[in-house]
């Protein structure tokens, strides 16, 4: 029997391999360990497409890959969904991995469904957790061993669903950036594994969509990496008052967050949005100002280690999950916090 394989799609960015791919390799390592038994090892494999990438494979071995499937071709320099789909589908069919993981980035979220449709397998979007488990259906007595449990919020974050693909493999999922922890790299150059160079399939019909222009800027807002987030909701009242949120954030060296309502009101850019449709965060401290706590927002921040809620409404849902609650007017309280912090510093 062939060894089981977990494939992680390695996404390229201007600055090299995307962070989410590193997160997936770390999670993949854990899942591979869980799937391996004493006589049957499960391999963690990277599937990497691009141009002139061959020289960088050591980095992936230092991220604990057992194997790297490499499709290195000048025509694959830019991500184009059609050519990337063709090359991935071809090799997924050939090697039949047990699991294939993608980052739920703009690339992953358009590439993975196209592949799943062509391979005819299941795909779960935007997972926030992955586990391995045995499943037995009481209704038809069917039992499955070692399935990938794909865990994701659904229904606007109101439910957490566990999705499985019992029969049509590979089991494919996209995973939210920032939710899986990254393992530390092995000492540079010490990771070992096998590189399998695959022949690129380049067909003219896969290049009928042309990239005319592409502008990508350095990310200015880093909510995922922030240790402290000061976040404002509709209770802030207006754009002028939102400056207070920024001032407190600046004082504490924090990143600025916001609810969808605050973003929709035009008080701050969408890049700052925390929640089900924004970014999922888990900072050391989350200060929620004028945020009542819709489930959509809570879904994106409730795993923060400490939560301070400032709200005029003592019964607001956010007050229930906060570690510190301050029942009052944020226009008075925030200046007090800034003052108290500056005095102690």
């Amino acid at each position: 029997m062939n060894k089981k394989q977990i494939w992680v799609y390695i996404e390229n960015t201007n600055k090299g391999i995307a962070d989410v791919s590193k997160e997936l390799l770390s999670k993949g390592r854990e899942l591979a360990g869980r799937l391996s038994s004493y006589n049957q090892k499960t391999e963690l494999c990277a599937i990497w497409l691009g141009s002139n990438i061959k020289k960088n494979v050591q980095m992936l071995f230092d991220m604990r890959c057992d194997k790297i499937y490499l499709v290195d071709h000048p025509e694959l320099k830019d991500f184009k969904v059609l050519s990337y789909t063709t090359n991935l589908v071809e090799n997924i069919k050939k090697y039949n991995p047990y699991i294939v993981l993608f980052g739920a980035t703009s690339i992953g979220r358009e590439l993975a469904p196209r592949i799943a449709s062509a391979v005819r397998c299941g795909l779960t979007a935007d997972c926030t957790d992955l586990q391995i488990g045995d499943i037995e259906f009481k209704t038809n007595k069917k039992a499955y061993k070692d399935l990938l449990l794909q865990i994701r919020p659904a229904f606007g974050g109101n439910i957490i669903a566990t999705i499985i693909n019992p029969e049509m493999h590979p089991q494919m999922a996209t995973v939210r950036p920032g939710v899986m922890k990254t393992l530390e790299l092995l000492p540079t150059g010490t990771g070992k594994g096998e590189v399998i160079a695959l022949e690129a399939k380049i067909r003219p019909e896969d290049f009928i969509v042309e990239i005319i222009q592409k502008i990508q800027e350095e990310k200015k807002v880093d909510l995922i990496g922030a240790q402290i987030i000061v976040s404002g909701g509709i209770g802030v009242g207006n754009k002028e008052n939102f400056k207070l949120i920024k001032e407190l954030a600046q004082t504490l060296g924090a990143e600025i967050g916001a609810t969808r309502a605050a973003v929709d009101s035009g008080w701050i850019h969408k890049d700052h949005q925390v929640g089900q449709t924004g970014v999922t965060v888990r900072p050391r401290l989350y200060i929620a100002c004028g945020i009542s706590g819709s489930i959509q927002h809570l879904a994106g921040m409730q795993e923060s280690k400490q939560i301070i809620a400032i709200n005029k409404d003592p019964d607001a849902p956010i007050m229930k999950i906060a570690h510190y609650k301050i029942n009052g007017d944020l226009n008075r309280i925030i200046p007090m916090m800034i003052k108290a912090y500056k005095e102690k510093e």
């Binding site: 299941g122 109101n158 957490i160 693909n165 809570l298 229930k320 510190y324 609650k325 301050i326």
Partner: peptide, 20 residues
């Protein structure tokens, strides 16, 4: 191919809250 195996409803879990 995908089946919903389990659904957990998200409920607000009360924390031990300090009132400031």
């Amino acid at each position: 191919p995908t089946k919903v195996f389990k659904i957990n409803y998200v409920t607000l879990e009360a924390q031990e809250t300090k009132e400031i």
